[in-house]
Simulated scan of single mutants.
Amino acid sequence: MSDSIILGIESSCDDTSAAVLKGNIILSNIAANQEIHNEYGGVVPELASRAHQQNIIPVVRKAVDKANIQQKDISAVGFTRGPGLLGSLLVGTSFAKSLAMSLNIPLIEVNHLQAHILAHFIDDANPQPPKFPFLCLTVSGGHTMIVVVRDYFDMEIIGKTIDDAAGEAFDKIGKIFGLDYPAGPIIDRLSKNGDGNSFKFNKPRIENYNYSFSGIKTSVLYFIQKEVRKNPDFIKENLNDLCASVQQTLVEILMDKLEKAAEELNIREVAIAGGVSANSALREAMQKNAEKLGWNIYIPKFEYTTDNAAMIAMVAKLKFDRGEFTDLSVSATARYDIEEEGFK
């Protein structure tokens, strides 16, 4: 079973990705990005699905070629069923079903959020994988949540955002600053030349382990409007400090709840996952807590943080070993209820 070869397909948003996994080792992980969305300041669903249709065959072919295998060597096809943009998901789902049927091999559906967490178990994702149970801060453009991971398919969401996701907040605030989309990596880069203590923004007071990010977005907007009225060049003159201050505030919001959960649940195994886990300030905060609080931390390689098919293949491999296959009648779903699949 460990020598199974899994083809993973990911198409939940604007990246078309395919990966080949043998055992826990990634043989290839290919992605085609859709830069057209930069012109619109966000992902346009109709354009995304059209681009997936153009990209999926060449991306899968390249993944298979780079892995130095033939299609007949593939043991199963894993694909993202959801959550995500329905049009984008339909492209990946339809292709995966067709390929599995033509090769007469199992089809395996994967929950996109589950895959972000289980990416930690890819052979080269970490020096060593997390030990159960562990906490995972899963943070991206569409989701922000703290999950207790007791086993591969025994997870419990103990906190989540009640409005915007953290990645969404980065992008919306970046738009206020006049930055291109996606703004998160740009803010991260500019922050390195700024002082995070230059400007103070309000942090929300939300109960338990839940998050809220709409308030800081509004706080930044009103602050900028007020300052620009006094000095039209305020953003330009203070951009690095503004980015550093926003990033510092967002990371503090994320870490405050994660620290609270780790302490109250007495869990020292702590991981991050999702696109925002590539953020340098978040990674530094995790390192500091490892030293200060005695955490064993797990920070995945950059290539496994954003949407990628390697993580889809990893979950599909775990399901393959358990004999959990998907019927060909399956359909994509934009709101894949994570309570249904491996989450409590």
Rank of each mutant, 00 (worst) to 15 (best):
residue 122 I to Q: 04
residue 256 D to A: 15
residue 277 S to Q: 04
residue 130 P to S: 12
residue 292 K to Q: 14
residue 249 T to R: 08
residue 185 P to G: 10
residue 140 S to T: 04
residue 152 Y to C: 04
residue 8 G to H: 04
residue 164 D to W: 03
residue 34 Q to I: 02
residue 176 I to Y: 07
residue 336 Y to S: 04
residue 150 R to Y: 07
residue 299 I to E: 10
residue 61 R to C: 08
residue 93 T to L: 06
residue 165 A to E: 09
residue 328 L to V: 13
residue 220 V to T: 05
residue 256 D to W: 02
residue 43 V to Q: 04
residue 33 N to V: 13
residue 76 A to L: 07
residue 106 P to M: 08
residue 91 V to K: 13
residue 190 L to A: 09
residue 58 P to C: 07
residue 176 I to R: 05
residue 132 F to Y: 15
residue 23 G to E: 00
residue 278 A to D: 09
residue 134 F to R: 08
residue 147 V to K: 01
residue 267 I to C: 10
residue 173 I to M: 14
residue 55 N to D: 13
residue 167 G to T: 03
residue 324 E to P: 00
residue 69 I to P: 02
residue 233 D to P: 03
residue 234 F to E: 05
residue 83 P to A: 06
residue 180 D to Q: 15
residue 27 L to E: 03
residue 183 A to S: 15
residue 65 D to Y: 01
residue 12 S to F: 02
residue 95 F to W: 06
residue 334 A to Y: 03
residue 71 Q to F: 14
residue 332 A to Y: 10
residue 164 D to L: 01
residue 215 G to W: 05
residue 12 S to K: 03
residue 250 L to V: 15
residue 212 S to T: 09
residue 95 F to G: 02
residue 22 K to E: 10
residue 84 G to P: 03
residue 17 S to G: 15
residue 182 P to D: 00
residue 99 L to E: 09
residue 108 I to S: 03
residue 98 S to T: 15
residue 19 A to G: 04
residue 3 D to A: 08
residue 189 R to Y: 11
residue 89 L to T: 10
residue 228 V to N: 01
residue 30 I to D: 01
residue 282 L to K: 06
residue 15 D to I: 00
residue 44 V to N: 11
residue 214 S to Q: 04
residue 55 N to L: 02
residue 304 Y to A: 07
residue 126 N to K: 09
residue 51 A to H: 11
residue 307 D to I: 00
residue 159 G to F: 06
residue 136 C to S: 14
residue 68 N to R: 14
residue 280 S to I: 09
residue 244 A to S: 15
residue 163 D to F: 01
residue 283 R to W: 02
residue 260 K to T: 12
residue 284 E to C: 00
residue 29 N to R: 00
residue 9 I to Q: 02
residue 156 E to L: 12
residue 296 N to M: 07
residue 314 M to P: 00
residue 48 A to F: 04
residue 315 V to E: 01
residue 15 D to F: 00
residue 133 P to V: 11
residue 86 L to K: 15
residue 318 L to Q: 13
residue 180 D to C: 03
residue 52 H to Q: 13
residue 268 R to A: 11
residue 140 S to G: 08
residue 340 E to P: 00
residue 42 G to E: 07
residue 181 Y to C: 06
residue 195 D to H: 02
residue 317 K to Q: 13
residue 55 N to H: 15
residue 232 P to D: 07
residue 344 K to L: 12
residue 335 R to H: 12
residue 110 V to C: 05
residue 326 T to V: 03
residue 86 L to A: 12
residue 85 L to Q: 12
residue 131 K to H: 13
residue 57 I to A: 10
residue 199 F to Y: 15
residue 5 I to F: 02
residue 334 A to C: 04
residue 41 G to C: 04
residue 149 V to T: 11
